[in-house]
């Protein structure tokens, strides 16, 4: 019985890694609402943020269920502090200019899409089901973000420069996505969640192809940051949570 309990604790951890990542990115993308470079893009970004928030409700909802302590998705999203968040560092990077937002999205989508594909094969049907639903949405996210990276990389001299700068800045946060720790390995061995390192070949293939077409160059030998998945974040996450969780924290008895 000992191992079963442990696996649930790990599964909770694994589900928070997915749900916190979509939550933090969805939140970041929603910051653009009303401020995007063109109306059509404003609308497209909102669609993406809505998909990510919807996925968050599913992942964190399941996490709460697995945990079995009566916490729902909102409790997990709005009542945990930064060190309890398990999102990837990449997605908490501030929006920067629109190029950085798009590059962050692309580098993430190129991981998100194959990861969901792999999760569709989970032996836990609840996970497989969420992954299948999210996968359909994310396939479009990747198509869009890859296309925009190519177009802007190979657009004007300025758009090229901005996209290259974005790539240089964000690249050091990509390694974490494809590094497995003990939790990842245990979940993978149990057949419930895919190990992130198995995603690397697919990620590299997509990223290589798109960057090539975009005439952009990935930095070589960059030092890779890590820690988000274990709860060690950048300073940025605390500010995001201070904003996001403020009402829930200030009025803990209120129903909204």
């Amino acid at each position: 019985m000992e191992t079963v309990v442990d696996l649930d604790a790990m599964l909770f951890e694994g589900l928070c890694r997915m749900g916190d990542t979509t939550l933090v990115l969805g939140h970041r993308v929603s910051e653009w609402c009303g401020h995007a470079p063109v109306l059509e893009e404003d609308i497209a970004l909102a669609n993406m943020a809505l998909d990510l928030i919807g996925q968050t409700q599913l992942w964190l909802g399941l996490a709460g269920e697995v945990e079995g302590k009566g916490r729902d998705a909102d409790m997990l999203a709005f009542r945990r502090d930064a060190w309890e968040f398990r999102n990837l560092l990449l997605v908490e990077r501030p929006n920067g200019d629109f190029g950085q937002t798009l590059m962050r999205q692309f580098l993430f989508d190129a991981w998100h899409q194959p990861m969901l594909k792999a999760l569709e094969g989970s032996n836990d049907p609840r996970i497989a089901e969420i992954a299948a639903k999210a996968g359909r949405e994310v396939a479009y996210h990747l198509e869009r973000s890859a296309d925009l990276v190519i177009r802007l990389g190979d657009g004007t001299a300025e758009s090229h420069k901005r996209m290259q700068t974005a790539l240089d800045r964000l690249w050091p946060y990509t390694g974490e996505m494809m590094t497995s720790d003990a939790t990842d390995r245990a979940l993978s061995e149990a057949g419930v969640m895919a190990a992130p390192d198995t995603i690397r070949p697919q990620w590299e293939a997509v990223v290589g192809e798109v960057l090539g077409e975009a005439t952009l160059k990935a930095p070589e030998g960059a030092y890779m940051h890590k820690g988000g998945k274990q709860g060690t974040h950048s300073e940025h996450l605390g500010h995001m949570l201070a904003t996001m969780q403020w009402l829930q924290r200030a009025y803990p008895d209120a129903k909204w």
Binding site: I43, I53, D74, A77, W256
Partner: peptide, 22 residues
Amino acid sequence: ITRAPTLERMAILLAKVQDEAG
């Protein structure tokens, strides 16, 4: 939007503001 008190409220508000862009 970034201060909406629940995930559902956030999604509804985002969808509404998106409608206005539309």
